[in-house]
């Protein structure tokens, strides 16, 4: 633990390991990002990429970086960070390591909106909008059903799982109603993909992150740490638990909905990144910032794998995150079992 103090009474507390993990994730994301911007049908060296980013590239390089590759990279970073941040918030709020938005119905809700647009027909902007709105509405519905003089972890988890099951059924029904071409497009969307994503996809998530990120990290982070100890303890220490939980759920649902709108319901990032962050930092607490940075790194790396793993064939990024996330979860179970904790 490092403590910084100034004569003016300002004091800051830093966890060196968490700091190292966060910085490493950020630097790796940038490095992989530069590689990603330089690779593809028109390869560019890292130096060329950096020169182009600084505004000194040829018109062709400018076009490829700024119009084609940078939006996709920005979408990956923003979606990864948003999903991981929301996942860390959810897992802490419901005090359950499986309390992730992919299992609690929020992403299924976003998918329902998107599927309706695909079946009825609409532009990709409409699809994103519908996904965001229906994801948020699902969050509201789950909160209202689970509310009984305050919302408690278990009730929220069970309600969420119930709603997720219903929506999975609805989504399946919508798929069977769609013509073959639309159904194929829908399945691709449902897997989660960053293919052909532009600024229109990246910007809403980036803006939400810029507005909600600092509020969640600085405004609610310390209080969220106390809520891990139970509502009574947090209340006794002066945390307005119910109000804060509503605000945090709202912020997390908004982040998940916008992320799903941009890239589809990308699997397992929200579930895996916070666990991985906690293992790396070895710091108790929700580890919000390390989780978000790790989420960004995970998705950027997963997208590179998705594009390059099978030569001549691009996978949707959701396939890769599903494989990595599922594999990690099973490895985690095996490790816990070896350590005798399970």
């Amino acid at each position: 633990m490092i403590v910084l103090r100034t004569p003016g009474g300002v004091s800051l507390r830093l966890h060196p390991r968490a700091l190292t993990v966060g910085l490493t994730c950020a630097l790796l994301t940038l490095a992989v990002g530069v590689l990603a911007l330089g690779s593809g049908d028109y390869p560019m060296s890292a130096a060329d990429v950096l020169r182009t980013l600084a505004g000194g590239g040829t018109p062709a390089q400018e076009f490829i970086v700024h119009e084609l590759r940078l939006p996709r990279l920005a979408t990956a970073i923003a979606v990864g960070a948003a999903l991981a941040l929301a996942g860390a918030v959810f897992q802490t709020l419901v005090r359950n390591p499986l309390g992730s938005p992919d299992l609690l119905g929020f992403t299924q809700g976003a998918a329902t909106g998107a599927l309706v647009v695909i079946v009825v027909g609409g532009t990709s902007t409409m699809l994103s909008g519908a996904a965001a709105i229906s994801g948020f509405a699902t969050g509201l519905l789950i909160y209202l059903i689970a509310w009984r003089r305050g919302v408690h972890g278990y009730r929220l988890v069970l309600t969420g799982i119930g709603i997720a099951a219903i929506l999975t059924g609805v989504n399946g029904w919508l798929l069977t109603r769609a013509p073959l071409m639309d159904a194929a497009r829908a399945v691709l969307w449902l897997t989660g993909s960053l293919d052909g994503r532009g600024w229109i996809h990246a910007l809403p998530v980036l803006i939400a992150l810029a507005l909600l990120g600092p509020a969640v990290l600085a405004g609610a982070g310390p209080a969220l740490r106390l809520m891990e100890m139970g509502d009574d303890s947090a209340n006794a220490l002066g945390v307005p638990v119910e109000r804060l939980r509503l605000a945090l759920l709202g912020a997390a649902v908004l982040l998940v909905s916008l992320a799903s709108a941009a890239a589809g319901p990308v699997n397992f990032v929200a579930l895996t990144a916070p666990h991985l962050a906690r293992r790396l930092t070895r710091a108790p607490g929700p580890n919000l910032l390390p989780s978000a940075l790790l989420g960004a790194l995970l998705l950027v790396v997963a997208d590179q794998l998705a594009q390059r793993a099978v030569p001549g064939h691009q996978l949707p990024v959701g396939v890769v995150t599903g494989l990595i996330g599922g594999g990690y979860l099973i490895w985690l179970l095996a490790a816990e079992r070896r350590a005798g904790r399970l």
Binding site: V10, R95, E228, S233, P284
Partner: peptide
């Protein structure tokens, strides 16, 4: 009360200082 996973004694006790702390006064 629930002790968070892996927390050490001093860290847990220090959480009692929450009402006296703030964004710029994290550990006086």
């Amino acid at each position: 009360s629930i002790a968070p996973d892996g927390i050490a004694v001093a860290e847990l006790v220090s959480r009692g200082r929450y009402p006296h702390q703030g964004l710029l006064r994290q550990w006086s």
